[in-house]
């Protein structure tokens, strides 16, 4: 850690008026702690939530159990064990997938992708399981929605091309981000089925920050060139790269 004792609030002459407005706002720690707790519970970090309740001296909002099953489902999806995940979701509440065909299809397609991934690992592997699954589980659903059909066709293309030589669109399907995305959707659906908020407040807060900056810049408001958050930078905000004209290096939000 730098031993510099530069006071954070040392007024530099170049300080933008807007920076002063920012500094004048004192967010309530109670609110922030609440948002953190909400996030830990909503997105399924039960151990952190438990510790946080203790350390920040706040009441956990729900019992740990309900988080736990969501965590298990998430981990199963992340690990590619889609069948396990579907079972667990149905154990929790069969209505969830019944009432959301798109989500169900997304899970089944993910399962197909995992099967294809296994099949294509070795050059001479048997692709029958993947074909059987596709024709028995996905094909009957595909005609109900043009999106489903498109997704299925794209997925089947994975069988044709060698995994090391895929078009970007196809390569996308094998990336972990797809699992993450489906896992998020499942989590939201479960939360909605419990009558809870679908998304953690923190997500919308982060979007609000991004949106507000865009709008303010569009409207030609007088803002500093960048508004760094100071992540990964435990020094004073005034010495941020932004101030040194090294724009873009700061952890600014863009969209």
């Amino acid at each position: 850690m730098s031993s510099s004792t530069v006071s954070v609030s040392a007024a530099t002459p170049t300080r933008h008026a807007f920076q002063r407005r920012i500094d004048d706002i004192k967010p309530s720690k109670t609110d922030i702690n609440f948002v953190i707790m909400d996030y830990l519970i909503n997105e399924g970090y039960p151990r952190a939530a438990q510790k946080f309740a203790k350390e920040a001296n706040i009441q956990p909002l729900v019992e740990e159990e309900s988080i736990q099953s969501r965590v298990e489902i998430r981990n199963a999806i992340h690990a590619g064990n889609i069948e396990v995940a579907i079972h667990k979701i149905n154990d929790l509440n069969p209505q969830i997938l019944d009432t959301d065909p798109a989500l169900h299809f997304a899970l089944l397609r993910l399962q197909l992708i995992e099967l294809i991934r296994t099949c294509t690992l070795s050059p001479n592997a048997d692709i029958t399981p993947a074909l059987t699954f596709a024709s028995s589980q996905l094909a009957p659903r595909a005609p109900t929605n043009p999106e489903f059909l498109k997704d299925l066709e794209l997925t089947m293309a994975l069988l044709i091309f060698p995994p090391e030589n895929l078009s970007p669109q196809l390569a996308e399907l094998l990336k972990p981000s797809l699992r993450q995305e489906v896992a998020n959707r499942v989590n939201e659906a479960i939360l909605a089925s419990l009558g809870a908020r679908r998304e953690a407040r923190l997500r919308n807060l982060v979007r609000l920050r991004s949106w507000a900056e865009n709008k303010a810049r569009e409207a030609g408001k007088d803002l500093p060139a960048v508004l760094p958050l100071g992540l990964n930078d435990d020094k004073g905000e005034d010495e941020d790269e932004a101030m040194n004209g090294n724009g873009g290096a700061g952890d600014v939000m863009v969209s």
Binding site: D31, L208, R209, A212, L223
Partner: peptide
């Protein structure tokens, strides 16, 4: 982030 958001919203 909260401070910036609030300040931006105020401006808006």
């Amino acid at each position: 982030l909260c401070q910036q958001t609030e300040a931006l919203i105020n401006v808006l």
